[in-house]
Design a protein around this nucleic acid. Structure first.
Lengths: 165, 165
DNA sequence: ATGAGCATGTAACTGGTTACATGATTTA
DNA sequence: TAAATCATGTAACCAGTTACATGCTCAT
């Protein structure tokens, strides 16, 4: 694929768990080519601008397989709402509950986006071997967002049931 | 508190959802002081080195309250295991299942660390108004890690039950 | 002609980590 | 006296985003 193709694919199909900017995509492609993991050929565009299309070399395919066999990194994030909750005693209880409710609403919006997502699989994922994996990435999003929503609800419940703080 | 104190507090009490390095902690304190949000005084150390102890100014307290009232950012991460799963068709099924099992095991380890965590609250959180918030931050960790573990199990199940890929 | 989409790229910047320097004091 | 801990700081580096530049082609 070309850099442009990859960007579009990531932005449509993988966007709920990955993103790439041109600012790191194109330099990365150059680097991978320099390392001999991918090779490029110029594809003259008929009715479109020319494209630089990359494909794996055999060294690259080996590297891919090796990466796919290594353990995956555990994702790590700073969670701002937990920091706000921890310092919530500086502010009235209702203020914190509002922040939690707003967070819950945002999470619910995103969760709703996942709902219509299963049906879209056949348009976006042509390789049948990728269909189950793709659905599992969506399931992941649903499960995590559901858990976060349940947590917000529980947090609101506990704060309300303990008004003396 | 001093920069050193803050670092220790974050590393012990908030470490499951936040971290700070000296490399951004000390410059941030300088900046906040320059902005008039905190002020410092030198505390001569008896039997210990001197410390620079910071406290909020009234402008700083207002800024804190305002921050606590604003909606919290939604955390966003790249999830490597989903990327590996998406490209899993390049590698034998058992390889992917091993990666998922390894991830499950790592998640289970971290979840186990949360278990003994509730009891520790009284040592670490002196302000009684912070005890419920602190417990809720731990509950958050537990709920998220449980969800991630359940997802790994479901992913393994679905991949195994569909051997034709 | 003009704007939208195709396509490749980079410079400047931001946010953050790592590693190190410095020096005091306490404990083994 | 050596190691551990207390305490403050910075320079170098790395990862990644944003914003912009460039130029092609197609549809209106």
């Amino acid at each position: 694929m070309s850099g442009y193709d990859i960007k579009k694919m990531v932005d449509t199909t993988l966007r709920h768990f990955w993103k790439e900017s041109y600012g790191r995509l194109y330099p990365t492609l150059k680097k991978l080519e320099g390392d001999g993991l991918i090779k490029s050929r110029l594809k003259r565009g008929r009715k479109k601008p020319d494209r630089i299309v990359y494909s794996l070399t055999s060294r690259g395919r080996r590297a891919l397989k090796s990466w796919l066999s290594e353990p995956a990194e555990l994702p790590w994030v700073r969670i701002e709402i937990l920091l706000k909750l921890f310092f919530a005693h500086n502010v009235p209880l209702e203020t914190t509950i509002k922040v939690l409710e707003q967070q819950r609403a945002e999470l619910a919006n995103i969760l709703a986006q996942f709902e219509g997502f299963y049906e879209v699989v056949d348009d976006r994922v042509t390789d049948p071997a990728q269909k189950i994996p793709f659905r599992l990435t969506i399931l992941h999003g649903r499960m995590i967002y559901e858990a976060r929503i349940r947590w917000c609800e529980e947090a609101i419940r506990q704060l309300q049931s303990n008004p003396k703080r």
